[in-house]
Amino acid sequence: MVRVRTGISDLDKMLGGGFMEGDAVLLAGSAGTGKTTLALQYLVNGVTQFGDAGIYVTFEQLPDQIYRDAKNFGWDLRKMEEQNKFRLICTSPELLLETDGGESILDGPIKEIRPRRLVIDSLSHLEMFVPERELRKEAYRLIMYLKTKGLSSLLLWESPQIIGNSFSVTEVGISFLADGIVLLRPVEIESSMRKAIGILKLRGSDHDKQLREFEITTQGIKVEASFSEYEGLMTGSPRKKATLGEAIDQFSAAFARKEKKS
């Protein structure tokens, strides 16, 4: 099975080698968790490490802001565009979804640079233009278009739920359409906000089931060790796991209390 590597080595390990070629993967997370950074890094690494051209479609953020932010990580997107290895398209969802004339606005750029990778930032913006009952159908149509073009795509999804017990990736069943789901999530540990990454789903492939910590560094996303000392991360209120020694101490103390009472 051909894999499309993200170029973030520890994330690729979590994915069992990378995304499956031609898959549409949902990258979900609340605001500020690093979705845009990870998505750009996926495209930039595609160009610089694997020779894959890529397209970034943005609905809200203007390209000049994306060029500037990317430059902070050392990624020169304008240069990549000049080399016909990258395209940054800024449009509205209704135009992207429009196919009445038989042609999509992506057809031209796809013919020009023959990309292997594509990012849509974000699929959740479709909600502003498509009635909720049609959202799943329209998302399905878009995903099938990307698959028909052989693109390995990352579809960003902004989850309003930042932290807490109740959690759903999307409210409208989009997660059923995606081949994979990568979750970015803030977690509060000992009064500091840290970031966690996890693979919730990867159709047809085994993957790492652990939540791992990640940081946004000056070179982009860096995935680190799992939160092995903590449990209950998905609830938003993680607890430190007791070590064997601590567990024995707790048991002894409880036993001693019981003995004293009797």
């Binding site: 390209p63 449009t91 509205s92």
Partner: peptide, 12 residues
């Protein structure tokens, strides 16, 4: 000029 990648409706 700042955003040559814009392709949008007139409203957009």
């Amino acid at each position: 000029h700042k955003n040559p990648g814009i392709i949008d409706t007139i409203d957009g």
